[in-house]
Design a protein around this nucleic acid. Structure first.
Lengths: 216, 216, 216, 216
DNA sequence: CATGAATGAGCTTTCATTCAT
DNA sequence: GATGAATGAAAGCTCATTCAT
C-alpha cells in the first residue's frame, strides 16, 4: 500500500526537473502553433503549473526558446563532427558515417521539432540563428566542404564544386525533414529517415565516382 | 456647378492596384520582421495609405498572408509541371528542365521571400501550408516520383527508390535556399542558384546512370 | 427637436483636447493615490475613454508624469524670475515681489498638486527631478542667493549667509504647502498662502534690517 | 537521543533583533528606489534572510513601512516637546532650543530618510501620514503657535500671527531638508543643518524683536 | 523557526479591428 | 471610398503573499 496521496501534491519542492518540464511543454506548443502564437500561460498550464513558476526558471519567453535550442543543439553537434577533421582519402565512407549520424539524431521527434522551430524562428530571433549557425552549420558545412575538396584534389571523387556539392550532400535530408514536418508529406509507414539516407548515399556515391572517361 | 477641383490630381493610383501594393508592402515587412511582429499599420504606412484602407481590400491580417501566398504560388505551379506528364524515356533531360525552372522561379527575390514565409508560418496558419501543398508540392513530388519510376522501369536510370530519390532531386535546392535566406550562408558573390543547380545536375545525372556493370 | 443624440457621441474626432484631458485625470488620481498606485486604466476611465486611447497620446505611464510636470513648471518659472537679474539695492522689495508671485502661482490647486507630485516622485524618477531642478530650483535659488549677497555687500541688509538665508526666504512657503497638502494641516478658512506670505515678509524684512548697533 | 547538532552555530542572531534588521534593510532600499519599486524579496536579501522570514515579523509590506515610521517618530516627538509646555516669557530661547533639537534629530541620516519616505508615501498610505501628524506635527505646531502667542501677548516679540509664524520658524528647516534629499541641492561640504539653524535663528530673532519705535 | 517554490491577480503595453466622419 | 481615433482583449512580466517542508 502506497502511503503517497493519490492526488499529486500541489507543491513539489526543489524540483530540478522544472526547467525540462517547461521546455517539453513549450516544445509541443511551439510545434503546434508556433512560437509567436503560444503564450507563456499556455506553456505553464501544459507543464502543469502556473505562469509565475515559468518565470522562476526562465527570464523571458525568448529565454525558453533559447533553452530549447541549447538543450538540443549541443548533442547534435557533438555527435556529428568527430570523424571529419583532417581526413585524407575517399570522402565517401566519412560522408556515410556523417549522414547516418544525422539520420539517427533526427530519429528523435523532439530533435526534429526543435530543428523545425529553429528554421521557423531564426529569421526573427537572431540569437537563435546565431546559436545554431555557430554550433552546427558553421561546423558541418566547412567540414563537408573541406572533405570533398581534398577528395577532389586526391582524385578520389569527381571534380565537382565542393561548396555547392555540400548542399547536395545535406539538402535531401533537410528537404525530407521539411516535407514531413511542415507539410505532413512522408512515405507510407512514417519518416524513414534512415531509408532516405541509404537511398541518397547510393545515388550520391555513384554520382561522386570519378569519371573513368569511357561513357557514351 | 462643379464642386470638384478643376485640376485632376496628377497621380491617382487606380484602385485596382491597391491590393498588390498592400501585398508588396506586407511581403517586405514580413520578410524583415516576420508576420507576427509586423503590424497592419506598418503595412498600410509602407503601402502608402492608411490602416482602414487595408481593411477595404483584406478582411484580416491573415487574409493578407493568404493573398501573398496565392499570388505567388499559382505561377510557380503553372510554370513547372507541363513537361512532366506522361513522359516516357530517360528522365534526366526532364529533370534538368524542371530544376532549371525552379532555379529561375527562385531567382526572383519576392518568390523566395514568400516561400520562406510559408515555411515560417505553416504551423500557425494551416491553410497557408495546405495551399502550398496542394498547388505545388502535391503536384511536383508525385510528378518527379512518377518520372523516376518509369525511368527505372524502362532501364534508363539506376534502380533507386523513386519516392525517396525525389528528395535527392529537390533537396539540394531547398537546402541552398534555407541556408541563404535563414542563416545568410551563401557562396561568395550571392545566391547563385543556377550554379548550384548545374553542379547538382552533374552529380545527380552521374548518380542516376544505370550500373553497366563494367564499362565498354 | 435636436437631431443630435442626447447621449454623448461615442467617438469625438480630432480632439486636440485629449492630452490635456489625460493630464487632468492623471493629476487628480496621482494626487489621491500617488503615481505608483494609479493604473493607466484608471486614468483612462476617469478621463472618459479607454486605455488604448491614452497610449495614443502618451508613450508610457511615465510620459504622462513628465507631461504633467512640463505643463506646469514652465509657466511657474517664467512668471517668477524676471525681476531678479542684476538688481542692485535693497533686496527686500524684490523678495516681496518674488514671494507674492510664488503665492499666486500656488493659489492654483492644479499647480499645487503638481508640485506635490514632483516632491513625491522626484527621488524615484530622476528626469522629473532634473526637469524641476533645471526649470525652477536651479534658477530660483541662485537668483535669491545673488540678490541677498549684493544686498549684504551694499549694506542694505544684515550680514547673513546668503545661501542659507535663501532657505529662510523660501522655506516657509514650501513648509506651508507641505503641511496643507500632505497632512491637511492648514489655517481655518483654507490655505491662505497670501496671508502666509505677508506675515512671513513682515518677519523677514525686520530680520534683514541691518543692525543699527544700539541693541541692549 | 539528541538530534541537534552538538556544535552550536558560532553566530546566531537573536530573533529579537530581526525586526530591526528588516527595518534597516527596508529603509535603505526605500530610500534608494522608493517604496513601490522595492520588493519584499530585496528587503529580505539585504537583511540577510529569506522572504518568508520577513513575513514572520511583519504582516505585510505596508506593515514594514509603518514599523519604520513608528520606530523613528516616537523618539523625535519625545525629544522635542518637553520644554515648551506652559512656558512664559520671551519665546526665543525656547525656539532656539527646539530648532537645535530638530537639527540634531535630522543629523541622523536614518531619521532624514524616514521623514522623506513619509512625505513620499503619504498620499498612498494615509495611516502613515496620520501617524506622523499625530505624533509630531500635531504637537509641534500647536506648541510653537502657543509659545509665540504668549510671547506676543506678553510683549516679548513683535505682533505677528502666531499660527503663520510657526511656518516661518519651521519652514526653513523643512525646505533645507527637501532641497538636499530630493534634489541633491546642498551647500558645499554637506547638509550643515546646524549652520542653517544658526543662520536662521539670527534672522528669526531679529525679525521677532518687538518694534521699539525709537531706540533707548 | 526558517525557507523559497509556487501562486495568480494585476500591471503596462500592443495591436487587430471597427466605424463615425 | 478613405481615414485614423477609438476600442478592449490579450500578452508578457512582476511580486506580495502563502504554505509544505
Amino acid at each position: 500500500m502506497n502511503t503517497k496521496s493519490p492526488t499529486e501534491p500541489k507543491f513539489r519542492r526543489r524540483a530540478e526537473a522544472r526547467p525540462d518540464e517547461v521546455l517539453d511543454a513549450a516544445l509541443s506548443l511551439f510545434t503546434e502553433k508556433g512560437y509567436a502564437r503560444t503564450t507563456v500561460d499556455q506553456v505553464a498550464k501544459r507543464a502543469g503549473f502556473s505562469k509565475g513558476t515559468v518565470y522562476l526558471y526562465f527570464a523571458s519567453k525568448e529565454a525558453i526558446l533559447e533553452g530549447l535550442v541549447q538543450r538540443t543543439v549541443e548533442p547534435i553537434a557533438e555527435a556529428a563532427f568527430e570523424t571529419m577533421t583532417d581526413y585524407r582519402g575517399d570522402p565517401r565512407p566519412v560522408l556515410a558515417q556523417f549522414l547516418r549520424a544525422m539520420a539517427q539524431a533526427l530519429a528523435d521527434s523532439k530533435t526534429r521539432a526543435v530543428v523545425m522551430i529553429i528554421l521557423q524562428e531564426a529569421p526573427a530571433a537572431p540569437n537563435i540563428s546565431a546559436l545554431f549557425r555557430k554550433a552546427v552549420l558553421g561546423r558541418a558545412l566547412p567540414a563537408v566542404t573541406a572533405l570533398l575538396a581534398q577528395g577532389v584534389a586526391g582524385g578520389h571523387i569527381r571534380a565537382i564544386d565542393p561548396e555547392l556539392t555540400a548542399r547536395s550532400v545535406l539538402g535531401p535530408v533537410i528537404g525530407h525533414l521539411l516535407l514531413s514536418e511542415i507539410f505532413r508529406i512522408r512515405p507510407e509507414g512514417g519518416l524513414q529517415m534512415d531509408r532516405l539516407v541509404e537511398n541518397h548515399l547510393t545515388l550520391l556515391f555513384a554520382g561522386l565516382e570519378p569519371d573513368t572517361g569511357g561513357a557514351p
